[in-house]
Design a protein around this nucleic acid. Structure first.
Lengths: 197, 197
DNA sequence: GTCTATATGAAGATAGAC
DNA sequence: GTCTATCTTCATATAGAC
């Protein structure tokens, strides 16, 4: 791991981000030092500043990249026409995307308050755009008579909280497979929004 | 605020905990210094050590007290006999208790990783005991035929995540009152566990 | 019970050599 | 592109005076 001189590997940048991701998720942004990140990468602390202007930018990059990927993944799908199908697609994608990226998700939720005000606004806008997609699906389903939802805004928050919570307990190779978990959550979401069986 | 000498107010202890609560919730445990807490209280940093052996104990006290109060509040209620009533009681109490204590809840979820291993185990056991209460209610409802729940363990986690998520957006004096929010969430929980309307 | 002062260590970030 | 060395600031925690 530890190198002594000029690694020139050409992939130090990604390794810096990977180390920051893992360490921030494990110990928290404020508790992790640049020296710790450097040790994990195998360089001295000063060398990190070839790849990031400062620690804050490292955090922001991780969160922004995560949200961009989430929205890009959503955008790459064809939009189902029926509200029920759209909700199922949203539910399954959310579960799959989030369970595959536990560190990114953890950071995206836990470290918001450690973003500078400008960075916070930018990340928050992306999150809001994502929530709006679910809210639009719910409103369409109410409109069409498919869903029984008293307050689409609250249901949006409730469904996202419920789905994201999967990361607190789900582990690959545990009692249930991801596709079993997907099915169980989809059943709960379906019932929660009052889709007739 | 700032005192110069011997406050002798007799309530410095609670004020230290209150300051720690507010600052930890706002900036995170690792990002808050003892000096900041002292400034908020109006004493010098050294004086804090009359009230806590160290920073870690301050965090642990806040989390343990919070969980103890949650369990004590549950224990103080009469247990409804029907699973449906028990679930409604659980839901409403959870929402009320959590929405009244946003700082405590935030810390209880965000700062687990900053607890020492022993302290973590103790807090985790309390949380587990709370979750087990909901799981028992769900199992009873499945048994009695009142609920349609594929996997009580997952539903436990899903319901708790959904309910606790209320703290990310609910503010006293906002668009909806707490009792309206309670009703909407109870409707969603009811539907999610398949209670017939 | 609180103060001031301090021991000791570590943080983020930069400078200049190679 | 990375190293070593360093600037400057701040951290937790303790000691001893009042």
């Amino acid at each position: 791991m530890a190198r002594t001189q000029g690694s020139h590997s050409g992939i130090t940048g990604p390794r810096v981000r990977a180390a920051a991701l893992s360490l921030f998720a494990q110990h928290g942004y404020a508790a992790v030092s640049m020296r710790q990140i450097a040790r994990e990468v195998g360089v001295q602390a000063g060398a990190l500043y070839n790849y990031t202007p400062d620690k804050q930018s490292l955090l922001f990059d991780l969160m922004k990249t995560h949200m961009d990927e989430l929205l890009a993944t959503r955008a790459s799908l064809e939009t189902p026409t029926s509200p029920v199908a759209a909700l199922e697609t949203f539910t399954r994608l959310h579960l799959r995307f989030h369970s595959e990226r536990p560190d990114e998700v953890f950071i995206a939720y836990m470290e918001l308050r450690n973003l500078s005000p400008d960075n916070f606004s930018e990340v928050e806008a992306l999150r809001r755009a994502y929530e709006d997609q679910l809210e639009a699906i719910l409103r369409a389903g109410v409109e069409s008579g498919d869903f029984t939802v008293a307050d689409p805004k609250i249901t949006t928050m409730a469904v996202i909280a419920m789905l994201t919570g999967v990361n607190t307990w789900f582990r690959e190779g545990g009692r249930l497979s991801l596709s079993e978990v997907e099915q169980i959550y989809w059943d709960m979401v379906r019932q929660a929004v009052g889709i007739a069986a």
